[in-house]
């Protein structure tokens, strides 16, 4: 199941990091930040290859795949799997799932893709909040609640 969800801004500043579960390695803010932070390098590497491949005009099928906003599994550790998604506006969405829990070992790619797309929809709603300034942390409790229910129900 999903243990942590993060929204990272254009300049790699954390806009929102939320997590659930009683797993000791993810129940505090610091370890969540650490988990997400380790994913950023992999994310940027993935983006860089996307751009260079487009420049050299690689095979058509490959290109359509690379233009997908969902970047798939970034990498996995012994205990967690980290998935990434980058919007057109360079906002990075990261989802961390636990691979040790009984349901965690057989997470399908399509499920994670759906969850991240729904997270993107929630984010688009959250920044239309007139009390939110672009680039600031998202402190809306409504967004927090919706993300937590997404994590419980979707993945």
């Amino acid at each position: 199941m999903a243990v942590c969800v993060a929204v990272i801004g254009k300049d790699n500043s954390p806009l929102y990091i939320g997590g659930i579960g009683n797993d000791t390695s993810t129940d505090n803010e610091l370890s969540r930040q650490w988990l997400v932070h380790t994913a950023l390098d992999a994310l940027e590497e993935r983006l860089a290859t996307t751009n260079s491949n487009n420049a050299t005009a690689s095979a058509n099928a490959a290109r359509t795949d690379l233009r997908d906003l969902y970047l798939g599994l970034l990498y996995s550790t012994d205990t967690h799997k980290i998935y990434g998604y980058v919007t057109n506006t360079k906002i990075k969405l990261v989802l961390v799932t636990s691979s040790t829990s009984p349901s965690g070992s057989n997470i399908r790619d399509a499920e994670v893709r759906t969850a991240l797309r729904r997270l993107h929809a929630l984010y688009a709603d959250a920044i239309c909040n007139p009390f939110h300034l672009p680039g600031d942390q998202i402190i809306s409790q409504k967004f927090d609640r919706q993300v937590k229910s997404l994590m419980v129900n979707n993945v």
Binding site: T50, N54, T64, L66, R67, D68, L69, V86, T87, N88, T89, I91, H120, A121, Y123, A124, I127, C128, P134
Partner: peptide, 17 residues
């Protein structure tokens, strides 16, 4: 414009250039 762009590009593949 800043806020609406997030919404409009949601279903759009990544821009080439």
């Amino acid at each position: 414009g800043y806020k609406i762009m997030e919404r409009l590009t949601r279903e759009w593949p990544r821009f080439k250039d």
